[in-house]
């Protein structure tokens, strides 16, 4: 590892080992953008990002840095001026969620929402450090998930803005198998 470099959180070998096999060539082609499917109206939603907001909140979105309250010690995401627990103003110090583990508190498989590999799973992730966040849960696979399923965090594509050729990223929850 050279100076300034970072060891990958997962790495290629572990990523391949955790793969979910897809035997449909049509699906694979659609994932790679090699065929142009008709996705319906929900795929037309404009996912344009406010770049100034993205710049302002870069550590929250890119590094998953939320807040810890200086008054009551509650950790929270997003990091807003007033604490989610005690409402103390200007009380937040940085707290990194990227390496935190959690579990499913609530969830649903959403067959209505547009998603390249339906259904998307969404749910409240309950972090072991005592916080919750509504997140996308990916790599669910045939095993499925339920309340209590253990989760870790991974940095993933949040949205592809095809009009402006801009992909943006955030963190998603992955079942710990």
């Amino acid at each position: 590892m050279g100076e300034g470099s970072h060891r990958p959180a997962t790495g290629l070998a572990k990523s391949i080992a955790a793969r979910i096999a897809e035997t449909s060539h049509l699906k694979m082609a659609s994932f790679e953008g090699e065929i142009d499917l008709e996705w319906g109206m929900r795929a037309e939603t404009d996912v344009k990002a406010a770049l100034t907001q993205h710049y302002l909140s870069a550590d929250q979105i890119n590094a998953f840095v939320g807040g810890r309250c200086k008054v009551c010690n509650t950790v929270q995401f997003p990091r807003l001026p007033n604490c989610v627990s005690c409402a103390s103003p200007d009380s937040q110090t940085p707290f990194n969620f990227a390496d935190e583990l959690g579990q499913v508190a609530t969830f649903s498989a959403d067959w209505l929402q547009f998603y390249l590999a339906p259904p998307p799973y969404v749910g409240l992730v309950q972090f072991d450090v005592g916080s919750r966040l509504l997140m996308e849960i990916v790599e669910v696979g045939a095993a499925g998930i339920d309340v209590g399923t253990r989760l870790s965090m991974q940095f993933r594509i949040k949205a592809r803005d095809r009009k402006r050729h801009y992909s943006r990223y955030f963190w998603k929850a992955v079942p710990v198998r």
């Binding site: 907001q53 993205h54 997003p78 609530t106 498989a109 929402q113 998307p120 996308e136 339920d146």
Partner: peptide, 22 residues
């Protein structure tokens, strides 16, 4: 603008369906 950067795209039924799991 901030929430759209991190909040999952989620339909209304998926929001309420989570009550069933809970």
């Amino acid at each position: 603008t901030l929430n759209d950067l991190w909040m999952p795209y989620c339909s209304a039924p998926a929001g309420f369906a989570q009550l069933a799991a809970g």
